[in-house]
């Protein structure tokens, strides 16, 4: 009973973090929300996987956030435009997140019936993250936001997939994919940001 309550609390954290990532423009807040999301995802994954394997997802996720955060921290010039709050857009995104949460809540019992034993909080958390990730990807072309969207979608998938597949190789490869996305996002953030100078120009 107590564990179920914690699982539902994790789902609430998932919803709050997903909504924050969508609506708040500040990248620091978005990455913080992503960290919270990984913590909640860790708990939901641990319902079906051993603690050690679940913690791989948490560690890989937080490492990814660290990579993205360090890269973005050095790009202060980008802060002026990206961090402006657009109230209209924020309300629209909040409504979209509400639709995702409602759709996930509606689909959860159906999936539980189709695949018994997964657990309602696990399905609800997974679906909400997949939906939030897809919305994030559909609404922006900003590299950091696209990376966050992909990571969110993947962690939602991982929560559900952990219930049906517990192979170590898959866990390891999924952690690698997460880390790879972090490095890739970091690379793309840097691309075009570093001015190209030839050695001759540097000497001048």
């Amino acid at each position: 009973m107590g564990i179920d309550v914690i699982s539902w609390v994790a789902v609430v954290f998932v919803l709050i973090s997903a909504a924050s990532m969508l609506t708040v423009r500040d990248w620091r807040f978005a990455l913080g929300a992503l960290a919270l999301q990984y913590l909640a995802a860790f708990w939901l994954v641990s319902r079906h996987l051993p603690f050690a394997m679940s913690s791989i997802k948490l560690i890989a996720g937080w490492m990814t956030i660290a990579i993205l955060g360090i890269t973005r921290l050095n790009q202060t010039e980008l802060d002026t435009d990206a961090d402006t709050i657009h109230t209209g857009g924020t309300i629209f995104q909040a409504i979209l997140m509400g639709i995702v949460a409602l759709s996930a809540a509606g689909a959860t019992p159906l999936i539980e019936n189709a695949i018994p034993g997964m657990g309602l909080p696990v399905i609800m958390g997974g679906l909400a993250l997949i939906g939030a990730g897809v919305i994030n990807l559909g609404m922006t072309s900003d590299i950091l936001r696209v990376t966050i969207g992909l990571l969110t979608m993947l962690s939602g998938f991982e929560i559900i997939y952990a219930a049906v597949e517990s192979a170590i190789l898959v866990t390891g490869l999924l952690a690698l994919v997460n880390l790879g996305l972090g490095i890739l996002g970091s690379y793309l953030l840097l691309a075009g940001y570093i001015p190209l100078t030839s050695p001759e120009e540097e000497e001048l």
């Binding site: 072309s141 992909l150 993947l154 994919v177 996305l181 793309l188 691309a191 075009g192 190209l196």
Partner: peptide, 23 residues
């Protein structure tokens, strides 16, 4: 994408679609 070039929309869509296929 070389480091001196901003990634375009085609590259971003390529990543998204190929990653989407995996789940």
């Amino acid at each position: 994408v070389p480091l001196y070039q901003k990634p375009g929309r085609g590259t971003v869509r390529f990543i998204i679609y190929q990653i989407f296929a995996m789940p």
